[in-house]
Amino acid sequence: MIKVQNITVRYGEKLVLDRFCLEIPAQGLTALSGPSGCGKTTLLRVAMGLVRPSEGSVSGVDPARTAFLFQEDRLLPWRTVAQHITDVLPRFRRGEAGRWLAFAELEGEENAYPAALSGGMARRLAMARCAALGGDLFLMDEPFAGVDPERTARILDRLRELDVPVVLATHQPQVLAVCDRVVSLDGPPLRRI
């Protein structure tokens, strides 16, 4: 169980999370939905330990065993598609690169650099890298932004087959429809629910 207890986060004068509480079972696909700027990204970053809240705590998330997908792709312009995957794999798992490229439907693009990828391909590469890193939990921020609906459906199926709990931030109805649970976060600042 992931427990978010009384989290408060401010960016300067702006209050983003206000004594926010949430409990999510650590299983299946859980979506955090809500309008842009409502605090979904901040909540995921707090859970990952990337943003320190001014008060409150999160339990049930071990950053050392969690794979995190950033809101931006954060691809390295000087690494190829295949290298982005092998870079996060331990030496003895390097042979799995093809599996993760297939996961994101990037076969044939192994030697391409990020500059040559479309927005959707770059997003899928970022997702494949996150999945290849692996862990006990996936926290994914807008994983399907820019990905076409057919691929989104297929990749969601593969994500489910990995049998790792996933918490993802999204406002895509197609993604929300297949998640096991949806947590709606409406309008900033997020308050106790």
Binding site: L50, F70, E72, W78, R79, D87, V88, R129, L133
Partner: peptide, 23 residues
């Protein structure tokens, strides 16, 4: 953001230097 990525993706200091900083 690249350095944060390297931390989150569990890169060692040497790996961060080799794959992120030097390039």
């Amino acid at each position: 953001k690249w350095l944060e990525f390297a931390r989150v993706y569990r890169f060692s200091r040497l790996k961060t230097l080799r794959l992120v900083c030097l390039p």
